[in-house]
Nucleic acid binder design. Sequence first.
DNA 1: TATTGTTATACTCTATAACTATA
DNA 2: TATAGTTATAGAGTATAACAATA
Lengths: 166, 166
Amino acid sequence: MAENADHGDTTLGEAGEGQARPDLAAMVVPLGRALMAAEQPILDAHGVTMWAYMVLLHLDETPIRTQAALAKAIQADKTRIIAVLDDLEARDLIRRRPDPMDRRVRLLSLTTGGRQVRDAVRSAIREGEERLLAGLSAADRDGFLRGLRALSARPELTLLPEPERD
Amino acid sequence: MAENADHGDTTLGEAGEGQARPDLAAMVVPLGRALMAAEQPILDAHGVTMWAYMVLLHLDETPIRTQAALAKAIQADKTRIIAVLDDLEARDLIRRRPDPMDRRVRLLSLTTGGRQVRDAVRSAIREGEERLLAGLSAADRDGFLRGLRALSARPELTLLPEPERD
DNA sequence: TATTGTTATACTCTATAACTATA
DNA sequence: TATAGTTATAGAGTATAACAATA
């Protein structure tokens, strides 16, 4: 999936260098999988799943947050994070109390332990990533990160020249 | 998953710029999903699935190939591509004949129609991608592509400083 | 016995729908 | 009635294991 760069389609070399390369998805998707797999040992070492880590990351310093808002923020379904929250709460990494104002909602907040786990995991991941990126030239590393941030910030990517209407 | 860049972890700013950014996986994985979703309409328009397109791409000009080898090349399971091959063969986009030398293996090759579909899909995808990348500066686009190629070429990514032994 | 391709089964992840408790 | 959270069910995608044909 990550290698088949031998297509000489020079028919649309309009942008930049026009060098033959695999489809973006054919590189990005496997890279994402590899990165996730690479994070797994770190997460395991701290006893959290990827979803749990994402919850810890997003809870951050903002204690006032409904579960629905949290789920939306991490692109998850409301139903999907419940087991995660149950586990995190049972291990005192987060607190979950009913809102006095509206007792339907649960206010989520990070405990000290949760903050510690989050920081430890984040540091380990960041260190490993920097080690990875160190294999690139400074210019490429910079461009890669900037391009990545720019592209991943787009809410709706489309490859179509005109929107599909039916 | 793609946005939470508000962590001021300056404790490990050792490599490069040290600017705060989300985890790589938190950007790469959603981007991959978005790219796949963006490719879907193009694939649909040509009546092929993502796996079928990958098969067409990899079959390319090398007709002598076993199904197992093909599966391995596109990071799929042998069992997973069979339905795909069945469909492609039924639609005359690929040919599948038993090898006279070893009648266990099936020789796969691309038909003219298959080559046409492959080229059409690839062109459309490439066009859309260039349009996407046009939003980046030339330097960033270049760095992004180079970094992406370099990272996705690594067979085994690891974030751990030392192998986990127990 | 080992290997290619195939089929059948089971498992994981995720989304959808139904339920409760508050409002 | 509408909404936050929860639970239960069903679906898609994937991997594992068993099978048939050939070597």
